[in-house]
Design a protein around this nucleic acid. Structure first.
Length: 825
RNA sequence: GCCGGAGUGGCGGAACUGGCAGACGCAACGGACUUAAAAUCCGUUGGGCCGCAAGGCCCGUGCGGGUUCGAUCCCCGCCUCCGGCACCA
C-alpha cells in the first residue's frame, strides 16, 4: 500500500466499477421496505456549486445508510431544465437554449458522477425534453378539465427585465425574485391554477407533517394567511351594496367611514355625476400606474379621496362617508374596508391625515380612552362602549353577538378569507413547456387533445435582444387548426412557469420511461410518498407549496395514493465564505471541481458534512478541508499498517485484557453514536467526530500494545466496522479499504453494524464529587452503587472532608454512576 | 411592527431528559524525526490568581434577575444578529 492514498486513482476506479456493476440500480418490489430519498433537482446552470455539493452529500449519506439498513432505496437525480438563463444565453451568445442546456447537463452530470453519489441514473429525468413536458402539458389539461386551470384578465406582476409576468410568490418586496428589477402592474389576460381552492387543505395538511421543520410550516401558514371574520354589507342610498370584510365586528359601532380600493368596480358607479367624479378618476389613474414597489415602499403615505357618496350604517342607520384610498387592496376580502380609527392603527393614521372623526367603542380594562387625546389606535381587548345594546360587554363576546345579530337580519355573514392568491402560470417566454391551448374564432378556447401532445417547441426560431418570446412571432407555431372544428386557429404562445415542471418530477422518477401516462399507478404508489426530501429553504413557499398542491389534486383525481408528497423535509443551510453567500459578484466562490482535483470527492464530502449540522449555515474553510483530508490519510495509514496482520486472522480467542475491553467498548459506543446521530437527527458532524475518536483509539491501541499481544480478532472487527461506518460518508476510500482487507464484494452492500449493549457496560465509572454544586473531586466507583454506599465513598474522600469539616451535611444528591453532590450547612 | 431561529474559546462546533462546559476538528505555540523542508508523531492551549512544585482557588455559555442541591439547558425582563412576512382589514 502506498504511504498516501491516491484519491484520484481510487475514486476513478470505483466510480467505474459501480457503474459497470449497476450498483445503484433499483427496482420496485421485493421483501425489503421501500425508502424514497430525494434531493431537489438542480437547474443546469453549467457547474455544480457548493450548495449542490452540500445538498447531495447529505442526501447520499441518507441513501447509502438506508440501503445498509436493509431498505429498498430510490435515490434519483434529474434536471429542472427549463428557464430563463438558457434563453438569455441564446440572446447573448447565439446558442440555442436546448444546446446550452444539454451541454450544461452533460457537464454537471459528469461532476455529480465524480462526486460518487449513489444515483440510479437510469431514472434520470429532464424537464425540457418532449418526453417529459408532454406530461406537464397533460397535467395542465387535467387541471383545465377539472376547472382548476382558467384564464382571466387581471392586474398582474410584470418584470420588465425578464419580459414576463410573475406569480405572487415570485415577487419579493416588490422586486423580481430572479433579477431584482422593480415589478410593474399590468392588466393582462393570463392562465392561473386555482390553488386557492386548496387553501384550506394546504393549511390543514401541514398539521399532518411532523417531519417538516416548524419554520417552513409557519412560513406556509403565513403565506396562506387564513383569517376568520364577517362580511358586513353597507347600503348606499341608491341601493348599491358595499360589502366589507372585517375581523373585528366588535368595533362596528366605531365605523366613521368606508374605504374602497381604487380599482374597485363600484367606485365608478358611486362617483358618476358627482362633483368629485373627475378628481376621483384622476386619483385612480395615478394609483394604477404605481408599481408594486412604490405601493409597498417604506414610507407608504396613505392617500385617499372622498367620493361624495354615503352609505348607511347597518346597525345605527347613520350615514357613513365613502372614500377611496391606496391602502386598500382590491384582491383581498371584498376590496373595501370599514374605517375604525379608534381601534385600527391604519385607519387611525388615515383619519388623522384627513380629519375624519374618531369614535372609541372599546374601553381598555382599568383605563379611560378619549377620542380627542388618542395618540394611537387601541387594538387590544376591553369593554364595549357607545355600542347601543352591546354596551358593557367584553368585546370578544360582543363581537360574537353583533355577528349573530347581523346574520339574523341578513346584513352580514361569517366569512373565512385567505391571503393566498391563485397561481399565475403563464410566462411570455420561449424556454418552457407550451401551454396546450388553441384559440379558435368559432369555438373559443380549446384544449389540445391528449393524442396531439406534446405541443412541441419549434426549434428554428430567432431570439430577439428585447427578450420578447420568439413564439409570439413564430408563424409555424402560432398558426394551427382548431382541434374541434378544423378552422384556422391560433396557438397560445405563452409557456408555463417552470415551477409547474418541478411540481410533479418526484412522481416521474418512479416510472421515468413510461410512454403512455405521466407515471405508472402501481409504481408511483409503491414509492410515494418521498420519505426524506432535502433542499434549500429558499423553496419553503414556492416549490414546496406548488408540489403539495399538485399532489393533492392528483390524489383527489385518484392518480396517486398520497395527498402529501414529502413526509420528512430537511432544509439545509447555505454554504458561506468569509461570512457571506458565495457569489460571482463577491468573488468568494470556491469551485467544487477544484476541491475535487486537489483533495478528491471524499474529502469534499467529509468536510461539508463535518463542518456544521446540515440545517445550519456552513462557513467554508480551506484549513478545515485540509484537516479532513489528513483524517482520511490517517485512516488509510491505519489500515495499511495493520493489513498484513488482519489478513491472516483466523477465529482466535485470545485472553481479553483491559485494553481489549476498552477498544471493544469504544467500537460499540461509536456504532451506537454514529447510528443515532444519523438516524435521529442527521447530525453528521457529530457522527464523523465519533469516527475520528474511534480512529484515534485504534491508533492508541496499535501503538500501546505490541503486535504479538494484540487481540487480532477484535482488531479486525474494529477496523472492518470502522470502514463500514465510514462508507456512507466517504464511499470511495471505504470501498478501496474494504477490498484491501480481503473482501471481494462492495462495502456498500454490507449491512449496517449493530452495537452490542453488553460491550458498552463497564465495571467502574468516574463519578464527579460536588460540594454545593461545585466540582471538588472525582472518584472511580463500581457501577450500580447504592446512594448509601456512594455517599460513604464520597464523604470518605480527604478533599471532601476538608470542605465538609465543621459544617453540617444537609443533603446528599446521588445521580447514579454520574455525580454525587453534598449540600453542606 | 408581527412571526420564526440563533447568540458557547482565536475559529467551525460538542454537551442526549437540568448533572464534569468546551468532545471532535482547525489555528497557534513548544518539542521529536530530518542536512533541510514537506509529511508524520508527541505535548500545551477559555480568562484571572496563589504556589518552587504537586496542586489549588475564583470568574466564565449575549446582558439583568429568578427557580433549583445543581442552569448552556427551565421561567421573567432586556440586547444583538439572521431568516420570513409586511397596509391582508
Amino acid at each position: 500500500m502506498e504511504e498516501r492514498y491516491d484519491f484520484q486513482r481510487v475514486e476513478a476506479k470505483w466510480q467505474k466499477v459501480w457503474e459497470e456493476t449497476s450498483l445503484y440500480r433499483v427496482e420496485e418490489g421485493g421483501k425489503r421496505p421501500k425508502y424514497y430519498v430525494l434531493e431537489m433537482f438542480p437547474y443546469p446552470s453549467g457547474d455544480l456549486h457548493m450548495g449542490h455539493v452540500r445538498n447531495y452529500s447529505i442526501g447520499d449519506v441518507v441513501a447509502r445508510y438506508k440501503v445498509m439498513r436493509g431498505y429498498n432505496v430510490l435515490h434519483p437525480m434529474g434536471w429542472d431544465a427549463f428557464g430563463l438563463p438558457a434563453e438569455n444565453a441564446a440572446i447573448r451568445h447565439g446558442i440555442h437554449p436546448a444546446t446550452w442546456t444539454e451541454r450544461n447537463i452533460a457537464n454537471m452530470r459528469r461532476q455529480l458522477r465524480a462526486m460518487g453519489f449513489s444515483y440510479d441514473w437510469t431514472r434520470e429525468v429532464t424537464t425540457c425534453l418532449p418526453e417529459y413536458y408532454r406530461w406537464t402539458q397533460w397535467l395542465f389539461l387535467l387541471l383545465f378539465k377539472n376547472g382548476l386551470a382558467y384564464k382571466k384578465k387581471a392586474a398582474v406582476n410584470w418584470c420588465p427585465s425578464c419580459q414576463t409576468v410573475l406569480a405572487n410568490e415570485q415577487v419579493v418586496g416588490g422586486l423580481c425574485e430572479r433579477c431584482e428589477s422593480i415589478v410593474e402592474k399590468r392588466e393582462l389576460e393570463q392562465w392561473f391554477f386555482r390553488i386557492t381552492a386548496y387553501a384550506e387543505r394546504l393549511l390543514e395538511g401541514l398539521e399532518r407533517l411532523p417531519g417538516w421543520p416548524e419554520k417552513v410550516k409557519v412560513m406556509q401558514e403565513n403565506w396562506i394567511g387564513k383569517s376568520h371574520g364577517v362580511e358586513v354589507t353597507f347600503l348606499a342610498p341608491d341601493g348599491t351594496a358595499v360589502p366589507v370584510f372585517t375581523t373585528r365586528p366588535d368595533t362596528l359601532y366605531g365605523v366613521t367611514y368606508l374605504v374602497l380600493a381604487p380599482e374597485h368596480p363600484l367606485v365608478e358607479r358611486l362617483v358618476a355625476g358627482r362633483p368629485q367624479a373627475e378628481a376621483v378618476r384622476e386619483f385612480i389613474r395615478r394609483a394604477r400606474q404605481m408599481s408594486t414597489a412604490d405601493r409597498t415602499a417604506a414610507e407608504r403615505e396613505k392617500e385617499g379621496l372622498f367620493t361624495g357618496a354615503y352609505a348607511r350604517h347597518p346597525l345605527t342607520g347613520e350615514p357613513v362617508p365613502l372614500w377611496v384610498a391606496n391602502y386598500v387592496l382590491l384582491e383581498y376580502g371584498t376590496g373595501a374596508v370599514m374605517g375604525v380609527p379608534a381601534h385600527d392603527q391604519r385607519d387611525y393614521e388615515f383619519a388623522r391625515a384627513y380629519g375624519l372623526p374618531i369614535r372609541v367603542v372599546i374601553r381598555p380594562p382599568e383605563a379611560g380612552l378619549e377620542a380627542d387625546t388618542l395618540a394611537a389606535a387601541y387594538e387590544g381587548d376591553g369593554i364595549m362602549v357607545h355600542s347601543g345594546p352591546f354596551d358593557g360587554l367584553p368585546n370578544r363576546e360582543g363581537g360574537e353577538r353583533i355577528t349573530a345579530h347581523l346574520e339574523e337580519k341578513g346584513l352580514g355573514r361569517r366569512q373565512v378569507n385567505y391571503r393566498l392568491r391563485d397561481w399565475l402560470i403563464s410566462r411570455q417566454r420561449y424556454w418552457g413547456a407550451p401551454i396546450p391551448i388553441v384559440y379558435c374564432p368559432r369555438c373559443g378556447t380549446v384544449p389540445v387533445p391528449e393524442g396531439q401532445l406534446p405541443v412541441l417547441l419549434p426549434q428554428d426560431v430567432a431570439f430577439k435582444p428585447s427578450g420578447e418570446s420568439p413564439l409570439q412571432s413564430c408563424r409555424e407555431f402560432l398558426e394551427t387548426t382548431c382541434p374541434q372544428c378544423g378552422a384556422p386557429a391560433r396557438r397560445e404562445s405563452d409557456t408555463m412557469d417552470t415551477f409547474v415542471c418541478s411540481s410533479w418530477y418526484f412522481l416521474r422518477y418512479t416510472s421515468p420511461r413510461q410512454e403512455d401516462r405521466p407515471f405508472d399507478a402501481q409504481r408511483v404508489n409503491y414509492w410515494m410518498a418521498v420519505d426524506q426530501y432535502i433542499g434549500g429553504v429558499e423553496h419553503a413557499i414556492l416549490h414546496l407549496m406548488y408540489a403539495r398542491f399538485f399532489t393533492k389534486v392528483l390524489y383527489d383525481l385518484g392518480l396517486v395514493g398520497v395527498d402529501e408528497p414529502f413526509t420528512n423535509l430537511l432544509t439545509q443551510g447555505m454554504v458561506l465564505k468569509d461570512g457571506s453567500k458565495m457569489s460571482k459578484s463577491r468573488g468568494n466562490v470556491v469551485s467544487p471541481e477544484e476541491i475535487m482535483r486537489q483533495y478528491g470527492a471524499d474529502t469534499a464530502r467529509l468536510f461539508i458534512l463535518f463542518a456544521a449540522p446540515p440545517e445550519k449555515d456552513l462557513e467554508w474553510s480551506d484549513a478545515g478541508v485540509e484537516g479532513c483530508h489528513r483524517f482520511l490519510n490517517r485512516v488509510w495509514r491505519l489500515v495499511g499498517s495493520l493489513r498484513r496482520e488482519l489478513l491472516e486472522v483466523k477465529a482466535e480467542d485470545a485472553a481479553v485484557r483491559a485494553a481489549d475491553r476498552e477498544l471493544r467498548r469504544l467500537l460499540h459506543q461509536t456504532i451506537k453514536r454514529v447510528t443515532e446521530d444519523i438516524e435521529e437527527r442527521f447530525n453528521f458532524n457529530t457522527a464523523i467526530s465519533a469516527l475520528m475518536e474511534l480512529v484515534n483509539g485504534l491508533y492508541r491501541y496499535r501503538d500501546d500494545i505490541p503486535a504479538a499481544d494484540r487481540h487480532r480478532g477484535l482488531l479486525k472487527e474494529a477496523v472492518e466496522k470502522l470502514v463500514i461506518l465510514l462508507a456512507p460518508f466517504v464511499p470511495h476510500l471505504s470501498e478501496e479499504l474494504w477490498h484491501l482487507l480481503g473482501h471481494t464484494t462492495s462495502v456498500h452492500r454490507e449491512s449496517w453494524p449493530a452495537y452490542d449493549e453488553t460491550a458498552l457496560v463497564t465495571e467502574e465509572v468516574e463519578v464527579v464529587v460536588q460540594i454545593n454544586g461545585r466540582v471538588r473531586d472525582r472518584l472511580r466507583l463500581p457501577v450500580g452503587l447504592s446512594h448509601e454506599r456512594a455517599r460513604e465513598a464520597a464523604l470518605a474522600q480527604e478533599r471532601v472532608q476538608q470542605w465538609v469539616a465543621g459544617r453540617r451535611v444537609a443533603k446528599v444528591v446521588w445521580v447514579p454512576d454520574k455525580l454525587i453532590n453534598s449540600v453542606v450547612q
